[in-house]
Nucleic acid binder design. Structure first.
Lengths: 348, 348
DNA sequence: TCCTCGATGGAAAGCGCTTTCTATCGCAGA
DNA sequence: TCTGCGATAGAAAGCGCTTTCCATCGAGGA
């Protein structure tokens, strides 16, 4: 029925061992033999049995990329970059063809753990966790334990945009400098003269949410400006829309609103427009991430750029083992303020 | 070192066979025994060896979802929906925990084939191909052959947003009604009085591009209106930006531009704005897909809505086998015209 | 000319699980 | 009390590959 290694061996008049060696290319095989084997493979249209191979070799070519929301370009861009890096890495070396797959956790801790277990089952070669995580102690512990087991079993673990597990200095980690980015953004607003700034935050208990909020507050504190209203919501446009109403209700004299990210900012803009408020004339708006559509908003969004593509590539290479993690703990991915039309001086 | 089935069996004082049966739940095991086994599993923190299991059972729990561009929400939304459906399907049944993974082909035929092979290696339970495909005869043949082999090996194949392979009536297929959607869109423009309509098309040789263009032309032909300029480009914002310059150069009196999709439309809008043209006062703009950000464009984009989420869910269920494909060939997913502010009557 | 070593190829022992095929046990029917 | 059957559990044979020994064959070196 299905063609096996043995069939190929028989056709090429060699032993199964030789076929295996030709396919894996990690053992000297005479050129003529190799060619004969490859021809047989071709003629029989043979495809290696992955499970059998993984079982015998005790490794697999699967690389898992866990993301919080695959429908969000923030993750899409990083995942795409990582997948690209993993693909080209494979092309570079001889037989290391890796299957990079992305798994969508939907931000659910349970699904995250499930995927991690499934990946562990598959004896994945590497796992990349992208994006902030829930700050629930229980989940953190469970995740840390899972990652430790994975690492122990030989799976390379890479954290990308998620703080490193405390006490575990040896898994590669890329952390986004959300704090500094957020701080610069608020400083920019402060510099323009804003003193009443609302904040449309992301979901509670998420590292990304917390870090951005901390940066925001740090800027405020440093400038001696009192903190304005803050409301929390999901990382989507509707949350931004709703947050705006709430923010304005709490302080009708707001002159600026900082959003958890660009998507939320879009919702904020929509809400403002619907109330007949001008951006940035009446209220300035700022986002975060600098996703592709941000420049197309009207007015274009002031935001903080994160080198998502670059981070994804780096994560992919770390996962492939083609690049080594930096020696001194987690690497910081810098954030860069991008000023556009959605922020301006407050009226008055 | 690593815990195996045998270890669990020893601890629970049963045979490996029994442990396997408890884990797979497809054979009667006395409640007391089952409990003892489960406790042992828990105590030893046992995780099934996927490759071994797949090898012995000749099946795996992997479901591959191939998309053209994971950074594009068009695919992100569908993939997310499919993954959700596959996850919940697993929760519903007893042990059918499936690992839905998305693979990013980047629109490259070669990568598509590579992923298909890799999935075939893994003896994937199902494969979902999302989005239009390249219309190169050679690639079509190769893909069809690959899919046939997969199906033959027991992998369920689902096409979502891609035309069915000719001559293969038995793989499940969901086809988007791009033609009708595009036609309605252009009819809408025609109804508003537009007679000089430019078209910013997607990449050549792609089914999606062709179908949308055909619908557009059909509307034009039916109305006896001559076709305006058409330029092709990628499915991204920059392509739209550049296409606009070209379109306007070819016909400075254009009163409307139809874009291949919403992302391209955003680029068109940006280009128009940069030239000081009003939308829709000077030029009307229309997109396709109705991605989430379309409503946030200013003015909000007139577009054609495709039920991406629903299609993704359906594809996921077909892949799981929890829903049967419709009997009479491929299912058509309807497109719906959504009129918003970016289209209006031409001046004069 | 004999021996040693490098280059190749084969034999065979698993990798950890699933799944027949059997064996056992207890109880209902006769 | 004996037979038979349903319900469980175990034994053992692989699933298709990788990889560690070994065996073989020439070609130099002594």
């Amino acid at each position: 029925m299905t063609v096996t290694l043995a069939d190929v061996a028989a056709r090429a008049r060699v032993s199964p061992a030789t076929v295996s060696r030709v396919l894996n290319g990690n053992y000297p095989v005479a050129a003529s033999t190799r060619e004969r084997v490859l021809r047989a493979v071709d003629e029989l249209d043979y495809v290696l049995n992955g499970p059998a191979s993984s079982l015998a070799a005790a490794t697999s070519d699967l690389v898992g990329v866990l993301v919080n929301d695959i429908a969000d370009p923030f993750f899409g861009i990083m995942a795409s970059a990582a997948q690209g890096a993993i693909g080209e890495g494979a092309a570079g070396r001889g037989g290391g063809e890796k299957l990079a797959v992305v798994c969508n956790t939907g931000g659910s801790p349970a699904r995250e753990l499930t995927y991690l277990t499934l990946l562990q089952r598959q004896r994945a070669a590497a796992v990349i966790l992208m994006g902030g995580s829930l700050e629930d102690p229980e989940h953190l512990t469970a995740t840390a334990a899972k990652l430790a087991r994975l690492a122990e079993a030989g799976t390379r673990v890479v954290l990308c945009g998620r703080p490193p597990v405390p006490g575990d200095a040896n898994t590669a980690a890329l952390v986004f400098d959300n704090r500094t980015g957020a701080r610069q953004l608020t400083e920019h607003l402060l510099g323009l003269g804003h003193r009443r700034i609302g904040y449309a935050a992301g979901p509670a208990d998420r590292t990304t949410t917390r870090h951005r909020l901390e940066g925001h507050r740090a800027a405020l504190t440093a400038a001696g400006v009192p903190e304005g209203p803050t409301v929390r919501g999901a990382y989507d446009r509707q949350a931004g829309y709703e947050a705006t109403a709430e923010l304005l209700a709490r302080d009708p004299d707001l002159t600026a609103i900082v959003a958890a990210n660009d998507t939320v900012a879009l919702g904020v803009c929509a809400a403002l427009r619907d109330r007949g408020l001008d951006i940035p004339g009446d209220v300035s708006v700022a986002g975060f991430d600098d996703l592709p559509f941000s420049v197309d908003a009207v007015p274009a969004l002031t935001t903080v750029r994160l080198p998502l593509h670059g981070a994804g590539v780096r994560a992919g290479r770390l996962a492939m083992g083609t690049e080594e993690p930096s020696a001194g703990g987690p690497e910081t991915v810098p954030a860069e303020l991008v000023v556009r039309g959605s922020t301006g001086r407050p009226r008055g």
